[in-house]
Nucleic acid binder design. Sequence first.
DNA 1: AGGTGCATGTAAAAAGTTACATGATTTG
DNA 2: CAAATCATGTAACTTTTTACATGCACCT
Lengths: 178, 178
Amino acid sequence: MALAQAIMTSLLDADLSGSELARDFEKSMGFFWQASHQQIYQELRKLSQKGWLNKREVNQTGKPNKILYGLTLAGRKALADWVYGPTRVQPTKDELLLKLYNLSEENAEHLIGEITQRREEVMQRLYLYETIRRRHYADPAALPVRHKGVYLALESGIHQGEQFLAWCDQALELLATV
Amino acid sequence: MALAQAIMTSLLDADLSGSELARDFEKSMGFFWQASHQQIYQELRKLSQKGWLNKREVNQTGKPNKILYGLTLAGRKALADWVYGPTRVQPTKDELLLKLYNLSEENAEHLIGEITQRREEVMQRLYLYETIRRRHYADPAALPVRHKGVYLALESGIHQGEQFLAWCDQALELLATV
DNA sequence: AGGTGCATGTAAAAAGTTACATGATTTG
DNA sequence: CAAATCATGTAACTTTTTACATGCACCT
């Protein structure tokens, strides 16, 4: 969909290798963009061929060599232009909600378990985001322009998480009566 | 991912044709599951071959014939069992948040426009959901078991929407200072 | 009779997932 | 030296999207 731009955006601040990008996607960008390392390596190759990225090998002590990718001028230009193009959303697909459509006396207990587990997962994620917010975005209005955007994306993730926790509580309450 | 189950779930209450299913997916299930009519027709064929759905042709006055699909006993069984299996989530991919990572003085105005537009879209969707809630789910605790689950899914959509509106306001406020 | 909308599909391409492969380097 | 981990990939498969195709029936 826009994996190319997601990768290039990750490279705005620093040059990264494929595996570093993969780890990054799981963390900071993870709540609104995901990509496996296999996808990333393939896309990196394409972007290099297009001339939007350059690469250089870096020797590491104690680890195998890695290949760092960085934005070229053409890459930065392409990314900046992309912002003005059409925007697509690929909404969530959540099997848990689908399962709820199949709620019965039989499976209620099982679904309560699943919701409880998800609540836990989301709470941990939320804790991570809150930590980042406190550490880096204590005073949003004072941030440099681009970081304001990053902050807003983070806020979106936090809002989403909090909303989900509230929903879990409501769901568990109603399911308790089944 | 679980398109088969999404389709079968839609057929729990009534037999539907391919195009009716496609319309349904845009509406009620749309906020947590999406599928194009092309996908649906292919999946319907597979499910019929598996013996989970049966089909019958219906003549219509003023319209071409349609083919109604309904759950077989085997289909209902398979769906009920599926609930106990592993649950996957495919989180949102949203280009708008990715674009925000690229915020600059240059493009701030454009992004304000995009957010405003999205806010409008979500508000209309939310209005639809609220209408459904008022009409069919005024007294959740009194609902038959399965409908409690449907109600909770709807609630999730409403929460999400409200959360998004709040985020938009916060974003627009911060962006106004860029 | 020609245009429009509905219902049903097929085919090809793109995107994403799953499974596997390889070399290098620390660690036990 | 065997096992574990990291970094980099390839190949096959599945899912999803995009583009196109067809027939029918109403409406003007």
